[in-house]
Design a protein around this nucleic acid. Structure first.
Lengths: 134, 134
DNA sequence: CTAGTCCTTCCAGTCATGGGAAGGTCAAGA
DNA sequence: TCTTGACCTTCCCATGACTGGAAGGACTAG
């Protein structure tokens, strides 16, 4: 299978697939013409990576997940540990974003949003202690 | 004031302050020795930027916020509009993260996390349709 | 005078791509 | 056979918002 078809099947852009080869996440064969030739295992791996990326795993985490996937003697505890670390990262980011949202929302709420220059949002950004988003 | 002190006061790393000058967010004067000399207005701006960045505004949004802050004839509606766009971005990101969190959590929950290789997390990543995080 | 701490610029790297140029390959139709 | 046009290749540069580090100048305390 050539790269464009693989891109359609896996949902990943061709550029991204080439990049994944460059960083050795996948190692497709080459045809006599120099074209990449993707086997079913490559396509499998790319779909796997696409889903893992969709869940927010970093490339390096994907690499470890793939290694665990390939290792038939793995302990599921190792996979779970990896996932739990990532879950905590996600939870942390959500918390940060919610704090930002709350702080900004209170400023926006206080702003008249009319033609006058007085603006609690700008005041909040200008004054120390007026914005907290921890 | 020299850069290190400004860094302490504003809470921004010196490197970042230099970067902000490079992209013309700020324009500190220079002393005879070539050192940057920060006036109170620079320090004010840097603190403003630090707070805006803390609320998740991009550099370009910070630039627009600063311009509005400087413009004494601004309409607060313009500031509010900027903030509301950003609020929507934040809300979108939170939604995406929560979808990821939910999908990953259900996989993690199904995983025994013991010494055996069987792993619903890997199965979920490998099988089409098993993971949804939209 | 020297040691140590500042300051400067410049270059390169991060992460995960995306854009686009220059050029080779292949399949279909005139 | 020739020519399109769609595909493929590599290569280099750009993104955002920094961060690290090297090389070298400036200043302060002892």
């Amino acid at each position: 299978m050539n790269i464009k078809e693989v891109a359609e099947v896996s949902g990943l852009p061709a550029k991204t697939i080439r990049y994944y080869e460059e960083i050795r996440l996948i190692c497709p064969l080459r045809g006599a013409n120099g074209y990449r030739v993707f086997g079913t295992s490559d396509i499998h791996k790319l779909s796997f990576i696409a889903r893992a990326r969709g869940l927010g795993f970093s490339i390096e985490e994907c690499r470890r997940l793939l290694a665990l996937y390939d290792d038939k003697k793995r302990a599921s505890a190792d996979v779970k540990a990896l996932a739990e670390v990532h879950l905590r990262d996600i939870a942390t980011k959500i918390k940060e974003l919610r704090a930002m949202e709350a702080a900004l929302q209170s400023l926006v709420h206080a702003c008249a949003g009319d033609a006058r220059p007085d603006c609690p949002i700008l005041m909040g950004l200008a004054k120390p202690g007026a914005v907290c988003c921890d």
